[in-house]
Computed example of a mutant assay.
Amino acid sequence: MLIPTEILDKYMITHQDQSPVIATFELSRLADREGALAFLNAYAPELKAHSLDVAATYFTAQFARMFAAFHYAIWRCGVHLDLSMNILRVRIARHPDGYVTLKFDLKAIQGTTVPLANRSLLVKSLMTSFYSEQVRPILQSLASAAGISVGALWGIIPTYFEYYYEQWLEDPIDEVQRIHLAEDMDVLRHQLPPAVFGRVRNPFLVKFRYMDSPYEAGKKIKLKSACCLAYKTEESSYCLTCPRLSEAERSRRVAEYQARQS
């Protein structure tokens, strides 16, 4: 079937990309510890990371784009976009602005229609297969290769997924799409058993903490759901929204920022 290009464009998924990159890995290789280790050893130096666990968390943050694309295709376009690891490559690339990014490239663009009949059962089945068979093996392998708990990687995801979800709520959508989105998020957060993710608790079921925004008076911003380990890079600093940051240190950094703005 014809896959809407808006899905690929929106989540920066390429198709048989031939542009120059630093390194390319078949995504299926990352499900094997040896392949995961090779990827981390290639990615970590480009991030100026002091250890491989940083490369694992940074990969996971960008991998969340694939989760967003998967869900967006189903609820917004009525399409199951095939994002199987055997047809995806991950490419370490340098952005024109100088920073290092990851490109996810499809060897083939394929998918199937998600019919309205028995939609909820099919969506649950598709989610179960995607997270248990495509996502879980990769995160487990990366965690093992990086010497980090797989829970730390699952913990990275809600921050980024919530960002995409909030974007969807702001999109101009009709009532049917709004209902389907609510149903799909209920399946993801409340109906998928933790075993699908290999966890004792569903990793998408997160209660976010908030702080006063230093950038816009009267607004709140979310703290990250887990530490991304940015402090283990050349920057050697915790993010302002890092859950590991003490409230005293967070307040001090906010005060410094506001002083620079005045």
Rank of each mutant, 00 (worst) to 15 (best):
E170I: 12
R178F: 12
A146G: 01
S246F: 12
A230R: 15
R89D: 15
G218D: 13
H180S: 04
Y164R: 01
A36M: 04
D171A: 10
D184V: 05
P214I: 11
L47K: 08
E234L: 11
P214C: 08
L192K: 02
A55H: 01
Q191P: 01
R252Y: 10
Y11Q: 05
T101Q: 09
T128W: 14
R136Y: 14
T159E: 05
G198N: 07
V21R: 09
K207E: 15
L169I: 14
L205Q: 01
S129A: 13
S213Q: 12
E234R: 14
Y72H: 13
A108I: 15
R94W: 09
A36W: 05
V79G: 02
V254N: 13
E133Q: 08
S262M: 11
A73M: 11
K219G: 11
Y257W: 13
S225T: 15
F70Q: 04
V100C: 13
F130D: 13
T14L: 06
A68I: 13
G35Y: 01
Q110A: 13
V200C: 00
T113P: 08
T112P: 10
R33D: 14
Y231A: 02
P96V: 05
Y160A: 04
V196Q: 00
R76W: 14
T24L: 07
G111P: 04
V206S: 01
W75T: 02
S51M: 11
V206A: 02
V206R: 00
L40I: 10
Y43R: 00
H15T: 09
Q134G: 05
E6V: 06
R29L: 11
I179N: 04
S251P: 09
S19H: 13
V21G: 02
H80V: 05
C227A: 06
R201S: 09
K48M: 11
L192E: 13
L223I: 04
S262D: 12
A73D: 15
R260V: 08
S28C: 06
Y215Q: 08
V206Y: 00
S149M: 08
L2C: 02
K10I: 05
A146I: 04
M1H: 14
S84P: 00
L37C: 03
R199P: 00
Y215R: 07
L52A: 14
H95C: 08
D186L: 06
S84Q: 06
L126M: 09
L8N: 03
M66S: 09
G151E: 01
L205N: 07
S19G: 06
L188C: 12
A145H: 01
I156W: 03
N202G: 03
E34N: 11
H180N: 06
V206T: 01
F104E: 00
M12K: 09
R189H: 07
S237Q: 14
V21I: 14
G98A: 00
Y72I: 07
C77Y: 02
L81V: 05
T57Y: 06
W154N: 02
A108W: 11
A73T: 04
A36G: 11
